[in-house]
Design a protein around this nucleic acid. Structure first.
Lengths: 189, 189
DNA sequence: TCGAAGTGTTCACTATATTGGACACTTTAC
DNA sequence: GTAAAGTGTCCAATATAGTGAACACTTCGA
């Protein structure tokens, strides 16, 4: 058993910085209900649990699926030694982001022309983003951290952080990049 | 709203070819309970819904997360026109498997040396597998279907089907390949 | 210092979920 | 045909969840 309903609800509520009464008001239930659920003294009906979660808001699917928060990785950059080769015979395939908890994406090689730039407006979108430089040099900026990545070095960061890629060199640069694959887009209840 | 609890339960029960009474017996509840839930005349408590699902067995997370079964794609092979370019400026990045429902992976380029072969024992593992040939020719066998893929052609299939890659040519061949990213491994209740 | 407003908890009362045993119907076998 | 065993549904009785109003406690400001 991963987490009790009671524990989950309390985590969710506190993460959103809501008091039992505040959440109750938003959800249209009484504070007693939430108190009793969090003490595990009742097993709420689906309907009432749904009402409560609507006050967050959060879907039932999310509620039962979410995992404990992992501590944020201090640096988004990866050293070569942190990337296992999962390739086979005659194949080279390096897994980046190894060890990142709750990883939802797999990403592989791509090519940047000389001078290519994703733009000064700093990209920012939902999901996760991962990559490794294969050839040339790529300057990657993630939030307030910036770094020139050389071949063999990689990165992993949350795409909601603003970020930007630039090939500052005169030659082509290769890296691997992809968008996040929708992980079990939870049905909206 | 995706699916009602009532609908979901009925789908699950029927998929497992259980009668209301049979499931009730396994779950340790009465058939009335299941009948009423499936008619949406009650909103079960979490505890009783959990008991019911234990009879399947299925976790609450799975229950609220599962999607409608999609019909299997007739052919695992993709033509070039079916692959949208999601790349940006100075970047080329082709999304394979576009339109495949409930897709859990994103895959990009890789290199096969001349004569490389994943072996005659036919790979078979959990998840999904996708790829596209970039350079050279790769013979891909998936179950009883076999085909030589040329540059610009791709594939998408269920990894539980036995499969094999071979570079029959004398030159390097490039394709992109990756393992499935674990999609939201649901907490076991 | 004291009150006002916040927090989570408790309890009798009410609403609802669950039970156990019926019912009507279909399917299978003799 | 029809008895036996299956199906899902319905209803009065019971167990449990939800409510509303209290309680004790802390925090904050006058």
């Amino acid at each position: 058993m991963s987490l009790e309903v009671s524990t989950r609800l309390k985590l969710v509520r506190e993460k959103h910085a809501l008091s039992q009464r505040e959440l109750a008001k938003r959800a249209g239930v009484t504070n007693s209900t939430i108190s009793l659920i969090e003490q595990n003294r009742v097993s709420p009906s689906i309907s009432s649990l749904k009402k409560v979660l609507d006050g967050v808001p959060m879907s039932l699917a999310e509620f039962f699926t979410f995992d404990i928060e992992e501590p944020a990785r201090p640096s988004p950059f990866f050293e070569p030694g942190q990337m296992p080769d999962i390739g086979g015979e005659g194949v080279n395939l390096f897994l980046v982001g190894h060890g990142v908890q709750n990883r939802h994406i797999t990403m592989l090689r791509e090519v940047y022309c000389a001078g290519a730039d994703t733009g000064a407006e700093m990209l920012s979108h939902a999901g996760q983003e991962v990559g490794i430089v294969v050839k040339g040099e790529i300057e990657l900026t993630v939030a307030d951290q910036s770094r020139v990545l050389k071949p063999g070095e990689g990165y992993y960061f949350d795409s909601t952080l603003p970020h930007r890629f630039r090939n500052l060199g005169g030659d082509d640069a290769e890296l691997v990049s992809a968008s996040l694959v929708s992980p079990n887009s939870p049905p909206s209840f």
